[in-house]
């Protein structure tokens, strides 16, 4: 029972319940939403954001931020798509894209962890440079005419109507979730985010952990780029623009604290599903998709404010209890002492 209560209180479970409630609520208004196809499509369509949010979750868990993932997605997609178009093996294209992501992540990690530069600022600079490099690489043109075999992949079902991309992504997220929560090395990420100095003192390599987090984040963004390529079928130089903000929002919706050390990958992927389903849900509710940003903003602010306020209240209550207990012990002691003297 105690474990069950604990489970209920965890952020990813409350995010999941929120998602279920959202689906049921929309289902009440428009029952056709409750068909397995349309629910599964919510998941399938979230695959790019699931990858982005899952990657940036590593960085956010260590207490940093990465606003360059939109550009990383763009450049790896552009390079990968160009390779595919020019007829190279898809393995080579994907591996090249992933290694580009890893390099961008490594640069971010070195700047933030080794040089101690505030992560928002450093990754902002990297974002500008990488975004510019997309224009240099593509000369401002679209990358089109991709082999149909690759673009068809995005509709390839794995089981039933679950696409192969989402299936693999989901499996990866679940495996990494257990790596993060159950293995010693995996717990380093949360430990560093919770208290970097303390983690360092007990022998956790904080600098290396942060660098690794950025590399993982870059690789995830590149993977998202390759899936984006397959789904969209062409790459513009602005591909992935401002996706970083949406990925951060997805993490927050999934219960990850931006101050680090709190949250999970599963939470991030649920947040990504909520985030990318909003426009679909609006259509089912009969609203125009113009409400998309407004709803996202309201959701984001409401959830975060409620989270913070309840957390702060709990901290205050705890402090009061400790204080009350202390004074109770003290008055007890003085009374006893007084009794002895008499």
């Amino acid at each position: 029972m105690g474990q069950f209560k604990k489970l209920l209180k965890s952020h990813e479970v409350s995010s999941f319940l929120f998602l279920v409630a959202l689906i049921l609520l929309v289902g009440c208004v428009n029952p056709s939403f409750l068909q397995p196809t349309s629910i599964l499509n919510c998941f399938n369509d979230s695959v790019v954001f699931t990858l982005l949010a899952g990657g940036i979750a590593f960085v956010i868990l260590t207490g940093e931020i990465d606003v360059s993932i939109g550009a990383t997605l763009g450049i790896s997609a552009a390079v990968g798509a160009t390779l595919l178009r020019d007829g190279s093996n898809w393995m080579i294209a994907v591996l090249t894209a992933l290694s580009i992501g890893a390099v961008v992540g490594l640069v971010n990690g070195l700047g933030v962890a080794v040089l101690n530069i505030p992560s928002l600022i450093f990754t902002l600079g990297v974002n500008g440079v990488v975004r510019g490099m997309i224009y240099v690489y593509t000369k401002g043109a679209w990358v089109e005419n991709l082999p149909p075999a690759y673009t068809k992949l995005s509709n390839q079902p794995l089981v039933g109507q679950l696409t192969i991309f989402y299936g693999i992504t989901l499996a990866g997220v679940i495996i990494l979730h257990f790596v993060l929560t159950k293995t010693k090395k995996g717990k380093y990420f949360i430990a560093v985010g919770d208290n970097a100095a303390g983690a360092n003192l007990v022998g956790i390599p904080a600098v290396q952990t942060k660098i690794l987090a950025y590399v993982i984040c870059g690789v995830f963004a590149a993977a998202a780029g390759m899936i984006y390529t397959s789904r969209i079928g062409f790459i513009t130089p602005t591909a992935g623009n401002s996706y970083e903000m949406k990925a951060i929002a997805a993490c927050v919706l999934g219960g990850i604290s931006l101050s680090g050390g709190q949250g999970s990958l599963i939470g991030a992927s649920i947040g990504a599903v909520i985030m990318s389903s909003i426009s679909r849900i609006l259509v089912f509710l009969g609203f125009s998709s113009d409400y998309d940003n407004t709803i996202t903003g309201v959701l984001l602010i409401t959830i975060v404010v409620i989270n913070t306020v309840t957390q702060n209240k709990a901290i205050l209550k705890n402090r009061h209890q400790i204080l009350a207990a202390r004074t109770a012990v003290k008055t007890g002691e003085t009374e006893r002492k007084g009794g002895l003297q008499q």
Binding site: M245, I248, L258, T294, T296, G297, L300, I301, V304, N312
Partner: peptide, 26 residues
């Protein structure tokens, strides 16, 4: 929200950027 509720400024203004651009569209 930042000052009186103690929410992280980055999150609030991220939400704000969605919210206000959405309202502008409406």
């Amino acid at each position: 929200f930042v000052a009186y509720c103690g929410v992280q400024p980055m999150v609030v203004t991220l939400g704000g950027s969605f919210l206000f651009s959405g309202i502008a569209l409406l």
